[in-house]
């Protein structure tokens, strides 16, 4: 019943983007964590999680992201999130995730923000 998530990675000068297409639920845990561990092993310091606007994210998906925030803090990585609908931006603020990851409308906006702080 779950739309299997498609996870892919893109590299830019200032950041690595993890594109997420599909449901961000408990079924997505392995794929998301594998992508994160892989780019972390390659030395990523700025990581952008790019969501598809209308995909389904539930509290289990949020728990996956909390786990990644935990790892990112240990590794001194900066996390950014893009592509979220207004609804899920509200949910992420509600649960406090935005204290640990900056939200931007798009990957371009996030890259610009990172470039401006270089």
């Amino acid at each position: 019943m779950s739309d299997e998530i498609q996870v892919s990675v893109r590299s830019f000068d200032v950041a690595t983007v993890i594109d997420l297409v599909g449901d961000v639920t408990t079924f997505a845990e392995e794929a998301i964590n594998q992508a994160y561990q892989s780019i972390s092993s390659d030395g990523a310091t700025n990581i952008i999680f790019n969501f598809r606007e209308n995909d389904y994210i539930n509290s289990a998906g949020i728990a996956i992201l909390i786990g990644i925030v935990t790892e990112a803090r240990k590794r001194d990585q900066k996390l950014l999130m893009t592509g979220l609908s207004a609804h899920f931006q509200k949910i992420f603020r509600m649960v406090g995730l935005t204290q640990y990851a900056d939200l931007h409308p798009s990957v371009d906006d996030a890259l610009k923000a990172l470039n401006s702080t270089k």
């Binding site: 935990t70 649960v95 406090g96 995730l97 204290q99 640990y100």
Partner: peptide, 9 residues
Amino acid sequence: PDIRGMIEE
């Protein structure tokens, strides 16, 4: 939820 507590494990 104590998200800070969760993140700090």
